[in-house]
Design a protein around this nucleic acid. Structure first.
Lengths: 137, 137
DNA sequence: TCATTTAACTTGTTATTTACAAGTAAAACT
DNA sequence: AGTTTTACTTGTAAATAACAAGTTAAATGA
């Protein structure tokens, strides 16, 4: 794949994004954390997309080492970990929302609640604040 | 990879996006078309990212079949083709700009001209119109 | 007009990554 | 203390990407 360590791999924001989260599974994990309230390993597995366990493990590790997500032991149930978005991860929200807006427009099958889309198009900042409020800290 | 033909693969806007352009190379091709003025096969190859010829060919074909780009013979020089963004492709601009905004914020190496970033943060719609004006039709 | 060049691929092979299946380890529950 | 839960790791087969070389169709130059 792309070698992000070469000199040529620096400077461009799109390349940077791709090197940090530019993979289908990373996007879906971020979506789960941002919009679906998922936070445990098993929840990502059971999300039904069909990610395999080894790929999930490496993606979570990559996202963590890139500072996009945070991993901590569940204080309630110590056999599991809680994954949350860092500030850096949270700030991917405008990009994710722009993508959702686009998809809703061009994909007949996409089923975003009308209320969500309406808010997104009329007052995106307000929508973002609402989503943010519901994110686990 | 993800089977976008299963029932489970429909409904979600993020999954839809990933199935249509969710791959590093697709992003970079879209970036080239949207911001770098590239439009020929050889320009994508020579962009210096290191994409291989077979991968470029399949990505261009996929993007075309997904209606994101358009392929037509160059009227001036019939031995080559011109690739351009369709309306559907152009409307990925807000997402791309959101990504660039994010990258500029979190990557010290990212070198987006200050003027660009300033415009992006103060009046993104105006910036978009300017970029749009410069896109080949 | 016919050989050469240019541009866009295609094909073949190797290397890397992913998918799938099964096993392991650490903590919690009983 | 033994079973269960959760989060992985490991091994192998299949798919994809990288790399190198070859092919085709149009343009260009002699």
């Amino acid at each position: 794949m792309v070698d992000k360590n070469t000199k040529a791999w620096s400077g461009c924001p799109v390349r940077f994004g791709m090197s940090q989260f530019g993979d289908k599974w990373s996007f879906l994990i971020i979506r789960d954390l941002m919009f679906k309230g998922r936070k445990y390993y098993h929840e990502f597995i059971e999300a039904g997309e069909g990610i395999s366990t080894n790929v999930l493990a490496t993606r979570l590790a990559d996202l963590e080492s890139n500072g996009i997500i945070n991993k901590s032991r569940d204080p309630v149930k110590g056999s599991r970990f809680i994954y949350t978005l860092t500030q850096k991860g949270i700030e991917l929200m405008p990009m994710m929302l722009a993508m959702m807006d686009w998809a809703e427009k061009f994909d007949a099958e996409t089923e975003v609640p009308q209320e969500f889309i309406k808010k997104l198009r009329s007052d995106p900042n307000k929508l973002q604040q609402e989503i943010l409020k519901n994110l686990p800290k």
